[in-house]
Nucleic acid binder design. Structure first.
Lengths: 195, 195
DNA sequence: TCGAATCTGTTGGATAAGCAACACAGGAGC
DNA sequence: GCTCCTGTGTTGCTTATCCAACAGATTCGA
C-alpha cells in the first residue's frame, strides 16, 4: 500500500512505545476526562517509563495532538481516502468520515473539555485541507488550491460539527447529511463543472 | 497480591518482549500448527527482532515451554489457587483447572503435534506437583510431600487428559468429573482424614 | 500561611532491543 | 553431483528505553 504518510520506517521500539502511549491515553481520558489526566496516569497504564514519555512528547497536549492526528488518518485510510483522486463520491465519503470521526471521538472524552475540542478542530481541519489541496493539485483547474482547500475544510468541519451536536431525534444519518451538503461544498470548490 | 511466583520485578522491556512473543506464538501456532512454525514467523508477527528472540529463548521449543508454563500459571491465578492452602474445595478447583486448561489448549493447536502434548504434560505436571507439595508442607502430616505430590500430579493429569479426549456426548462437565474423581485423588494423598 | 504531598520536566549511566552481516545447515529442483 | 533458497544461531555496534535522583511547580489541607 502506497501510503501518503511516510511514517512507516520507524524503529519498531518507537512505534510500539507511541502506540502504547496512545492506547493508554485514550483509556484514561475516557475514564477521567482530559483535564484530570496526568502524565503519570498515562505512562503507568501504558507500562512505559515516564522519562520515555518525554522523549516522545513535550506534554500531554502534544500527545493529544498526536492521538487525534493518528485517529483521523486511520479514519481516512479505512475509507481509502488517503490514496485517491478527487471525485464527488470521494468528497461525499470525506464528509461522512469527518462526521463520524467527530461524533465518536467527542463521545469518547468525558467530560469533553474545551482543550480537547480545540485540538480536534485544529488537527482535523489541517488534514482535510491537505487532502483537498492534493486533490485539486492533480486537476487542471484555475482554482487556487490553497484558498479553495481552506474554505472547504472550514466548511466541512463546521457542518460536521453542527451535525454531530444535533441531538434531535430526526437528525439525518451521516450519509443523508453528506448528500444534503455535498453540492454546497462542491460549489465552494467551484468544481461542479470540472468533475 | 502475594504471588508464589517472583517474576514480577522484571524490566518492563523484557516483560513486554516476552509477552509479545508469547502472543504471536499462540497466533501462528493456531494457524499453522507447531511444527510448521518458524522463529521468523513468530518474530515477524510479534514485531520483535529475531536476535531479540534468541536473547530470551534458545529455540521455539523453549518458547513453547514458557508459553505453556505461563498459561497454566494464569489459569491457577485466575482461580486463586496460587495463594491458598489445602482444602477439598481447592483440590477440586485444581482438578477443574487442569481439565479446562488441557481442553482449551489442545483445541488451540492445529494440528496437535506430539511435541506439543509432551511439553504440555511435562510443564503442567511440574506445576501441579509444586503446588500440592506446598499444600502438604503447610500441613502437619506424616505423608511424604514429594511422594504424595508426585502421585497426585500424575493421577490428576492422567484423569484430566482422559476426560479431555472423551468425545462422548455424555461426557460429564469438568465440575461433575472433578466431584467424581475427588475422593480418589484425596485418597491418593492420604489426606481424607486430616482435612 | 505553612508544610506535605503530588506532579512535572530533566539528567547520566545502565541495560535491552534493533539491525546488518555472517557462516552454516538442510531441502528442492535440475 | 550441483546450485538456489530458506531458516538458524551468532556477533559488534547503534539506538531506545529504563531507572533513580533531582529541583522546581502546583495543589491541598491544617
Amino acid at each position: 500500500m502506497l501510503s501518503a504518510f511516510p511514517e512507516e520506517k520507524l524503529d519498531p521500539r518507537v512505534k510500539r512505545t507511541r502506540s502504547l502511549l496512545e492506547g493508554a491515553f485514550m483509556e484514561v481520558v475516557a475514564q477521567k476526562g482530559f483535564q484530570a489526566v496526568s502524565v503519570q496516569d498515562i505512562t503507568e497504564k501504558a507500562g512505559v517509563n515516564r522519562a520515555t514519555f518525554y522523549a516522545h512528547f513535550p506534554d500531554k497536549y502534544a500527545l493529544l495532538d498526536y492521538t487525534v492526528r493518528q485517529g483521523f488518518r486511520q479514519e481516512l485510510e479505512k475509507r481509502m481516502l488517503n490514496v485517491c483522486t478527487f471525485s464527488m463520491d470521494n468528497l461525499r465519503a470525506l464528509i461522512i468520515a469527518v462526521c463520524e470521526f467527530i461524533s465518536t471521538s467527542s463521545s469518547h472524552c468525558n467530560p469533553p473539555s474545551q482543550q480537547f475540542e480545540s485540538v480536534m478542530e485544529t488537527q482535523v481541519k489541517i488534514q482535510i485541507q491537505e487532502l483537498i489541496e492534493k486533490w485539486i493539485d492533480k486537476l487542471s483547474t484555475d482554482v487556487n488550491p490553497k484558498i479553495a482547500a481552506t474554505a472547504a475544510s472550514w466548511a466541512i468541519y463546521g457542518l460536521a460539527m453542527q451535525w454531530s451536536r444535533d441531538k434531535n431525534k430526526k437528525r439525518p444519518s451521516a450519509e443523508d447529511f453528506a448528500d444534503q451538503v455535498l453540492p454546497l461544498i462542491a460549489g465552494n470548490l467551484r468544481l461542479l463543472e470540472t468533475a
